[in-house]
């Protein structure tokens, strides 16, 4: 269990400017062990998504990337596009924030899923359809035959996000990067997607880098947390370390800003019950 699937050391991303260069990432160090879920939290502009792009070798021009990103032992920084294309999908895959924008509206789900599968596995059409059906089943979309014939606009946000996860997992990557995958969804659907990711990690041994600004999701899902602020990792640790004993000012601010059901977050903490705890206690007081 000591094998690192993702090992980032001293990652720097700098955009050259006319007057001065802008360092977006400043010496980021990050490790995730196989089968673990790491939550990367921070506000907009802190560099979370840039870290994710760097892992896929997708940092936009003309940025200069230095440092090292090892995905299952393979270096990403400095690779050619052709080599990166082989790694993407096979080693590392990504699920984006807005599922409606990440699928092509002109093609059916089946066309888009089988295209990916055939491209990476170089297999026949029938085999690809079978794999797509299997993929949809693994993300708990039961009527896979119906879904395959649908266009993206015919599905709900939650269904599309499941399809995106199926797409990302189609080539069995070692690392899944999920960039705020539930921000655009209803709370109830968010809970479903999070529980799906949790199961995939715990049952199928998937390693997940989960990017979010919602500490609540992190504490439900993640093994460890890294807090990012202005391009630096300012704090890492287990979820309970960071929530019970935040060191960095930004971590403290994030926790203070967390809206809790039942107002008195402190109260439910003291009782050692979940947020629905007080309602059960008070409701069940008969």
């Amino acid at each position: 269990m000591t094998r690192s699937i993702l090992d980032i050391t001293g990652l720097d991303v700098t955009f050259p400017g006319l007057v001065r260069d802008t360092r977006i990432l400043r010496g980021v160090d990050l490790q995730i062990q196989a089968g673990q879920i790491l939550g990367l939290v921070g506000e907009s502009g802190s560099g979370k998504s840039m870290t994710a792009s760097a892992c896929l070798g997708m940092v936009p021009e003309p940025a200069v990337v230095s440092g090292s990103i090892l995905i299952d032992g393979e270096e990403v920084v400095g690779r050619s596009d052709a080599e990166l294309n082989k790694m993407r999908g096979g080693q590392v895959a990504m699920v984006f924030q807005n599922p409606m924008r990440s699928l092509n509206p002109f093609f059916t789900i089946g066309q888009q899923l089988t295209e990916i599968i055939r491209r990476h596995r170089s297999c026949g059409k029938q085999e690809a359809i079978a794999a797509a059906t299997e993929g949809l089943r693994s993300v708990q979309l039961p009527d896979s035959n119906v879904i395959l014939c649908r266009y993206p606009h015919q599905l709900s946000g939650g269904q599309i996000q499941r399809v995106m996860i199926a797409l990302a997992l189609a080539c069995r990557p070692k690392l899944l990067i999920a960039d705020e995958p539930t921000t655009a969804l209803d709370v109830t659907v968010q809970a479903q997607i999070i529980s799906l990711l949790y199961r995939l990690a715990k049952e199928a041994g998937l390693t997940i880098l989960f990017i979010t600004h919602d500490l609540g999701v992190v504490s439900q899902l993640c093994d460890r947390v890294a807090v990012m602020y202005e391009g630096e990792i300012v704090e890492t640790g287990s979820v309970s370390d960071i929530i019970d004993n935040p060191q960095h000012a930004y971590s403290k601010r994030l926790i203070e800003a967390f809206p809790a059901v039942g107002r008195g977050q402190q109260t439910f903490k003291a009782q050692g019950k979940p947020a629905c705890g007080p309602s059960i206690i008070m409701g069940g007081a008969s």
Binding site: T188, A191, Y198, G216, S219, Q220, I255, Q265, F268, P274
Partner: peptide, 16 residues
């Protein structure tokens, strides 16, 4: 469905 800040709830999902 509202996520809580309590890590003891980790992996406990009461989903609809």
């Amino acid at each position: 469905a509202v996520p809580t800040l309590d890590p003891r709830n980790r992996g406990v999902f009461v989903t609809l």
